[in-house]
């Protein structure tokens, strides 16, 4: 098992190095463009351009430029934005990470619990009105764009019904650090969590129902019945347990994407200054160092959560474990 973990971590490091080279090449070695001009921003003065050239070592070979950039990203962390003069890129990402993490982890909890409940109930009552209603609700959830849900939620809780007893507790938009005020943190995030989770509850609930129904057609469920086990045990220990494999692999990918900045729309709508929000602002100003850093951060997260999924996969399914070892 330890060998499997180490091998997977090694692969992960390899993929991450590859991604960093790819990102570097896209930003610094696209033929026919001057990276210095793009980094300096629109209408930059000649002195700024010169400073950028010197700063990033554009007078030196590509390999040196790459090493220099990696050093500034991961060792010294002093990569600076030229659009927002003096904004240090790495610290601003590190500052944004807890916000994104709070949002995504909370939403993930909501959607895992809710979608397992939806999928299981729909499977238990398959073919009945409950099943159909849940599946239609799921479809509606998938169809509603998160920014629209967010805006509607804001409209209701921040403005129209804010003064009623039901929503008077809702704080203004923005993030409250967990370490400062846990209750405030929860209040500020609970609506964004739900808004972000709705899509995934629908999606995962439907997928889980399908794989549960499939599991119920398997021979081992018939065996479990023949063994005289109770229906609850058959559902949770046999059907749900074997259906978890699909569920976990989907979860890993989505979670990685969201932590990597994929919750951009939610963060913008709810005014949460997370990684997605940072990317959003950088895109508006064409702030290349920030975009580059967030892209790299995002891809690292997708790779890391993929590796985590593979390891969980191995824990869930013994057949995978042995194939790897």
């Amino acid at each position: 098992m330890i060998r499997v973990v180490l091998a997977r971590l090694g692969q992960m490091a390899f993929v991450m190095a590859g991604i960093s080279i790819l990102v570097f090449l896209i930003f610094f070695a696209t033929p026919g463009t001057d990276p210095a001009a793009r980094i300096a921003g629109r209408n930059a003065a000649p002195e700024v351009l010169a400073a950028v050239r010197h700063d990033f070592g554009f007078d030196q070979p590509l390999a040196v430029q790459y090493v220099l950039l990696m050093k500034r990203l991961f060792v010294t962390g002093d990569l600076t934005s030229f659009v927002n003069r003096g904004q240090k890129v790495v610290p601003s990402i590190l500052q944004a990470v807890p916000v994104t993490m709070s949002l995504v982890v909370g939403a993930a909890l909501v959607w895992v619990v809710a979608s397992v409940a939806v999928g299981t109930l729909a499977c238990v009552w398959r073919g009945t009105v409950v099943d159909k209603a849940l599946m239609i609700l799921g479809l509606i959830g998938i169809s509603m764009p998160v920014f629209w849900v967010g805006e509607v939620a804001n409209l209701i809780t921040q403005s129209r019904y804010h003064d009623t007893w039901l929503f008077s507790w809702v704080p203004g938009l923005g993030y409250v650090p967990l370490t400062q005020d846990p209750v405030g943190w929860f209040k500020a995030l609970v609506i964004p969590w739900v808004a972000l989770a709705i899509l995934f509850v629908g999606l995962y609930g439907r997928v889980l129902r399908a794989s549960l129904v499939e599991a119920y057609g398997e021979d081992f469920i018939r065996t479990a019945r023949a063994k005289g086990l109770g229906e609850g045990r058959i559902l949770f220990r046999h059907a749900l347990r074997t259906s978890m494999v699909t569920f976990v692999s989907m979860f890993g990918l989505d979670f990685g994407l969201l932590v990597g900045g994929g919750a951009l729309l939610t963060e913008v709508v709810f005014g949460l200054q997370g990684v997605g929000y940072l990317t959003y602002n950088a895109l508006q100003n064409l702030d290349l160092p920030v975009i580059m850093a967030t892209v790299m951060y995002a891809s690292f997260f997708v790779v890391a959560s993929n590796a985590a999924v593979d390891l969980i996969y191995a824990a869930l399914d013994p057949r995978v474990r042995l194939a790897r070892a």
């Binding site: 021979d219 081992f220 065996t223 023949a226 086990l229 074997t242 869930l316 013994p318």
Partner: peptide, 27 residues
């Protein structure tokens, strides 16, 4: 009833199947 039947299954009457691979929970 389901409950009464469950006490018979496995304890009084047991069954084995054609394909033992798919008849056992893989995990």
């Amino acid at each position: 009833s389901r409950r009464a039947l469950r006490e018979v299954r496995g304890a009084e009457i047991a069954m084995i199947f054609q394909d033992p691979m798919s008849a056992m929970t893989p995990v």
